[in-house]
């Protein structure tokens, strides 16, 4: 265990490098002024006439990107199936 108490140098280097790379958006983007918003503006303008939903996020989740939600529900179902399968013996 004494060998493991010293953190490996490569891991430390990797962590610092990843953090520094991910600091780049803070210099390139400006918070509050998104660059490209054409699709989102289309959803906001047309969600009520095309889906009838007041909530634009729900309109996207269940109508414009319904296949996404279908896959998401399937992932949830399969994860629960895996949990149930692992607890089969103890039950």
């Amino acid at each position: 265990m004494a060998r493991c108490s010293v953190p490996p140098k490569l891991a430390i280097f990797l962590i610092i490098a990843v953090t520094l790379i991910l600091l780049l958006p803070a210099f390139g983007l400006s918070f509050g002024h998104p660059l490209a918003s054409g699709t989102d503006q289309y959803y906001i303008d047309h969600s009520q006439e095309q889906t009838g939903s007041n909530n634009v996020v729900t309109a996207i989740v269940f109508d414009f990107r319904g296949f996404d939600t279908l896959g998401e529900a399937t992932v949830l179902f399969i994860a629960v199936l895996g949990v149930a399968m692992f607890f089969r013996r103890t039950h």
């Binding site: 009838g52 309109a59 949830l76 179902f77």
Partner: peptide
């Protein structure tokens, strides 16, 4: 009572998440 199938899908997903 608006929005067509969106409330139905909401109920379906609600039932599924509750059960899961």
């Amino acid at each position: 009572f608006t929005a067509g199938i969106i409330p139905v899908l909401n109920f379906a997903v609600g039932i599924e998440v509750f059960g899961g």
